[in-house]
Design a protein around this nucleic acid. Structure first.
Length: 311
DNA sequence: AAGACGAAAGTGGTTGA
DNA sequence: TCAACAACTTTCGTCTT
């Protein structure tokens, strides 16, 4: 660690400086690789005060934390235990056994499924280096989906992928369908289908993803400077104001914005390179790029840097 | 020779009758 | 349910650097 590193906070995973402080979740997330750099920034203060033991007992209410990444959320239900049986007559005993059998069948079916699914979810999520908060969220979504019987007729893996995709979008750490497809081994359109299905059925509303959210990741993959990065975000925001973005694929816009910004700052990357990291084709970049030049009048800025580089 | 550009045809998904 | 439609891709030939 050099002397300077102590003062500039960097992501320990990819050494990126693009750290994003999510105040609501009390986390610092690296926007380049998705690593949660710090997640224990919870507010440890109590919101009440206690003056004696009585009040404390009344007001303290926390138990062990419950979590969705454990298949039974750390709490499973069982109908009765052996010891309770002695208190029952034979009629009630039969009833008791029937109930327990059903309880067992229902809960084991769901729990078995959840156990497997959450293992898969963890695998994919760690492969994509997703933050813990996204993993939690997708586990929650998956659990809901199972409880509503939405998994029936669909492969478990595809629902897991769909849940992850939805969670990524909600947390503004978007991954493309391609990336999700690669890490989960599910076809892109299948993921998209289940994603739409479960979000509709569960009534989860998701805003269309913002092109600017992709910039940090793409730009670090292309090793572009911070200035180029912020320039491209500026361009994209401008484009959004002129309604150039609606209906277009967000990755295409992000790619084109980045491409132009790189040109302006004299850090030229080929369309091919940008297209590869963004998962779109050169043609799409060209189309967006053309639109950007026309409507935003960026030609002058590009010419300027061209002249400069000649000198 | 590599990259940028643009035309044309094809694909998968949405929308509206 | 089907056809029209927009966005995006694939492919390929031409122009520019």
């Amino acid at each position: 660690m050099t002397k300077d590193d102590r003062y500039v906070k960097k992501c320990p995973e990819c050494a990126g400086i693009n750290l994003f402080w999510n105040k609501e979740k009390g986390e610092i997330i690296c926007r380049d690789c998705g690593l949660v750099v710090e997640e224990k920034m919870v507010d440890f203060d109590q919101e009440w005060r206690e003056f004696d033991g009585d009040e404390a007992a009344k007001r303290r209410r926390a138990g062990a934390p419950s979590t969705y990444t454990q298949y039974d959320q750390g709490l499973s239900t069982e109908v009765g235990r052996k010891a309770d049986l002695y208190a029952l007559d034979s009629k009630d005993k039969n009833k008791f056994f029937r109930l327990r059998k059903w309880q067992y069948r229902i809960s084991t079916a769901i729990e078995r499924n959840l156990k497997l699914a959450l293992a898969e979810l963890k695998r994919v999520s760690s492969y994509l280096k997703l933050p813990k908060s996204v993993e939690e969220e997708s586990a929650r979504i998956y659990t809901l989906a199972v409880q509503r019987g939405l998994v029936r007729g669909r492969s478990m893996e595809s629902v897991v992928a769909g849940a992850l995709y939805a969670a990524c979008r909600r947390h503004e750490v978007p991954r493309t369908l391609d990336e999700l497809s690669e890490s989960s081994g599910i076809e892109k359109k299948e993921i998209g289908r289940t994603y739409r299905f479960i979000t509709r059925e569960l009534g989860i509303s998701i805003l269309p993803s913002n092109p600017a959210d992709y910039i940090p990741r793409f730009s670090s993959a292309l090793k572009l400077s911070a200035e180029t990065q912020s320039k491209s975000i500026e361009i994209i925001e401008h484009a959004q104001r002129v309604e150039l973005t609606s209906g277009r694929g967000p990755t295409g816009i992000a790619a084109a914005g980045l491409y132009v910004a790189a040109l302006i700052n004299g850090e030229k990357r080929t369309q091919r390179e940008v297209a590869d990291v963004a998962g779109v084709t050169e043609v799409t970049i060209r189309n967006r790029y053309k639109e950007l030049l026309e409507k935003l009048g960026l030609e002058k800025e590009i010419k300027k840097t061209k002249k400069k580089s000649k000198d």
